[in-house]
Design a protein around this nucleic acid. Structure first.
Length: 156
DNA sequence: GCCAACGTTGGC
DNA sequence: GCCAACGTTGGC
């Protein structure tokens, strides 16, 4: 079933996987491991399609903000780290038969200037973005087309 | 390190 | 199903 391209904002801690790390990976592709929130998982499992646009956001760092543009590069499949007892993402309640956690591959397209969280909050055109909502903790949020367009414009 | 906000867990 | 306790996220 065809549908229009959708857009997403995906948070990553740059100490774990930065936009530079993703661009340095083969084909710029990284598996989006470690999501352990059902709502974020459901976005990847149920809503994402190959080719969807992704804003690559750096969180948990000195300068949080959008650091690059990427795209969804696979359909959803089980996150292998849930089965790995040595991983911080290990989930003992997951089994190969019934995995809890799914992920998609993300392909980094380009690094951009850092569009800081501060700047995003200051822009009236972005005021109602989900990711800016007070108390929001979702690591993956859908992005409305108008917000996507505005952010690409700001990124130059 | 602090803390607001919110998700998850588990007893009942 | 309720809800208190606890854990996590993530900006500051």
């Amino acid at each position: 079933m065809n549908r229009n391209r959708q857009y997403w904002l995906m948070k990553s801690e740059p100490e774990e996987v930065s936009i530079d790390d993703a661009l340095a990976a083969p084909d710029g592709v990284v598996a989006w491991t470690g999501v352990r929130n059902y709502q974020a998982r459901n976005f990847m499992r149920d809503a994402m399609r190959i080719g969807d646009g992704v804003l690559f956001y750096h969180s948990g760092c000195a300068e949080p903000g959008i650091a690059g543009v990427a795209e969804v590069a696979s359909t959803a499949y089980p996150d292998p780290t849930q089965f790995d007892a040595s991983s911080i993402y290990h989930d003992p309640k997951s089994t190969q038969e019934q995995p809890r956690w799914m992920l998609v591959d993300v392909r980094a397209i380009r690094k951009t200037r850092l569009l800081s969280l501060f700047e995003m909050k200051a822009d009236p055109a972005l005021a109602d973005m989900l990711v800016l909502r007070r108390g929001n903790r979702l690591s993956i949020t859908p992005v409305e087309p108008a917000h996507w367009q505005r952010i690409l414009q700001l990124l130059g």
